[in-house]
Amino acid sequence: MKVIDIRKDGQSEIRRHEGEEILVKGCLGERYIGEGLKSGRMHIEGTPGNALASYLDGGEIYVDGNVQDAVADTMNAGLLAVKGSAGDALCYGMRGGKVYILGNAGYRAGVHMKAYEEKKGILVIGGKTGSFLGEYLAGGMIIVLGLGYEGERITGYFCGNGMYSGTIYLRSGEMPPNLSEKLKSRYVGDMEKEEVISPVVTDFAHRFGLSPKRCLEGTFIAIEPDESKTNSQLYVAV
């Protein structure tokens, strides 16, 4: 496996080895790593900087430590798995691929994620998230597992505000605070848990060597837009 010292070799070396399996080490806040990559497998040691994996278009990126802000911005395909936590504005406008964060995520995670044809953005957060999770969600799926935070609140305020498609699943028995009246929330039934949540969470658990059973135990809540309360009555033409 090719080893790249990010501080000596820089980004261009990563691009030169696109499609291969590489190890990028010594990261200390270097921005834009893995931007727009289409293939290959990258392991990252240290803490990569903002905008990691933005426009990612395929391949796999594994990060040993934490990641910072604006990670997986406008991501289109591929996989990003992070063993630590993520900063703010994670997965903004993401259209496809999977992002797995073992730890926590900051504010504004999953804002305006979408889905289109075979593409469907999937974000799984092992820990908990800050406020504004999944605002303007336009498609795709966000799952927050709250591992280690059982019995606690695992999202902040304004969860799912303005969302108009897609689903947010929370492994929690407690509804998020100040949920918008334009949203519907419900407890997830066994069948949906088995068919929709389980395959994604099982894959998540395997990537981090966790027990899928442990990640799936307990109650899940689903949050979705209330289709009877659309925005279509907002305006009248003159």
């Binding site: 336009a138 108009y164 498609s165």
Partner: peptide, 24 residues
Amino acid sequence: LDAISPAPHHDIYSIEDLAELVMS
């Protein structure tokens, strides 16, 4: 499905954030 462009970019709250998107 409606296509809604939010009023702000939710990843841009400052000139520094804008700089980040420009460079990205």
